[in-house]
């Protein structure tokens, strides 16, 4: 059927078309958000309290809530994830336990975020009695982020040359001294990059925080980790489906702030990676 050259031309055109159909909406979405959201951004919006049933005023508490939640998530998931990665790369033998851990991590990465929400509700909010709070939300998001951080940290640790470890051991260092002295310092850029990316995903999540921390309307800043908090992604949900007649400007403004929050993290991760890659000597 026809000339192979012509078929190739046609097929490559179809491939290109499919790619365009995927990419164009991405660009369009950013254009829409920027076009409608930028006019809303001003000091009053960013640093003000919501007013008139969230139909006016600012979104400061939601920004602070998201910030606290992101930091809380990091406080739990970073040490746990890095230590777990150290176990897998530096200590674990190739046996059934290691395989079990790997399978668990893969499965954790695949569990739906709403199931994390249920689990957080059952364990942290109810069973441990933390109530709906920044603490419960951070722990829930930390568990959800764990696989990302473990995977990124493992990759970073593995790329540290084996010879560095050998030198350290040959000088009489113990395993931990070697990890602390030569392995970790050289893996930190990769670990940080992966962590920031994981956290940026957590910052945009709604389902895990629905029942563990998010407050519908709470025009005050949280004062302790046992307080509930307003959070950006949930606030977008509220503004778009739960409260009637919210001005589009406020909706898009809030969305733009969340998108900026997430993208600043993504861009700093990319920047970090580029910076360290340039400095890398081995």
């Amino acid at each position: 059927m026809g000339d192979p050259k012509k078929i190739q031309k046609l097929m490559f055109f179809l491939l290109l078309l499919a790619t365009i159909i995927i990419i164009v909406p991405v660009v369009a979405i950013f254009a829409i958000i920027l076009f409608h959201g930028l006019p809303a951004l001003n000091w009053g919006f960013i640093f003000g309290m919501p007013r008139e049933g969230m139909r006016a005023g600012g979104i400061f508490p939601t920004i602070i809530g998201t910030l606290y939640l992101t930091l809380g998530t990091m406080a739990f998931s970073l040490p746990l994830g890095v230590l777990a990665a150290i176990y897998l790369t530096e200590y674990a033998a190739e046996n059934w336990l290691t395989r079990l851990i790997e399978i668990s991590i893969i499965n954790l990465a695949g569990i739906p975020s709403i199931v994390y929400g249920l689990f957080g509700l059952g364990l942290f909010v109810m069973f441990l009695n933390f109530g709906a709070s920044i603490l419960a939300g951070s722990l829930t998001l930390a568990i959800m982020t764990l696989p990302v951080i473990v995977t990124a940290s493992r990759e970073a640790l593995i790329t540290v040359p084996k010879s560095f470890r050998e030198v350290s051991y040959s000088l009489g260092a113990s395993r931990w001294q070697t990890v602390w002295g030569v392995v970790l310092p050289n893996a930190i850029p990769g670990i940080l990059t992966g962590t920031i990316l994981g956290l940026s995903r957590a910052a945009g999540e709604t389902a895990p925080i629905l029942f563990t921390v998010a407050a519908f309307y709470l025009p005050a800043l949280p004062r302790s980790i046992f307080d509930q908090a307003m959070v950006l992604p949930y606030h977008i949900y509220v503004l778009s489906t739960q409260v009637p007649n919210v001005p589009a400007k406020i909706q898009y403004g809030t969305i733009l702030v969340l998108v900026l929050f997430v993208f600043i993290m993504n861009i700093s991760a990319a920047f970090l990676r580029a910076h360290f890659r340039k400095r890398k000597l081995w």
């Binding site: 777990a84 176990y87 851990i101 954790l108 689990f119």
Partner: peptide, 26 residues
């Protein structure tokens, strides 16, 4: 060092514990 290494091991198996815990809770 022994304490740190115990923490490393615990963190290593934490993923398994969480999966089991999620299942048990549900």
């Amino acid at each position: 060092e022994k304490i740190i290494e115990a923490a490393i091991f615990l963190s290593g198996i934490v993923a398994v514990l969480i999966v089991v815990l999620i299942f048990i809770f549900l």
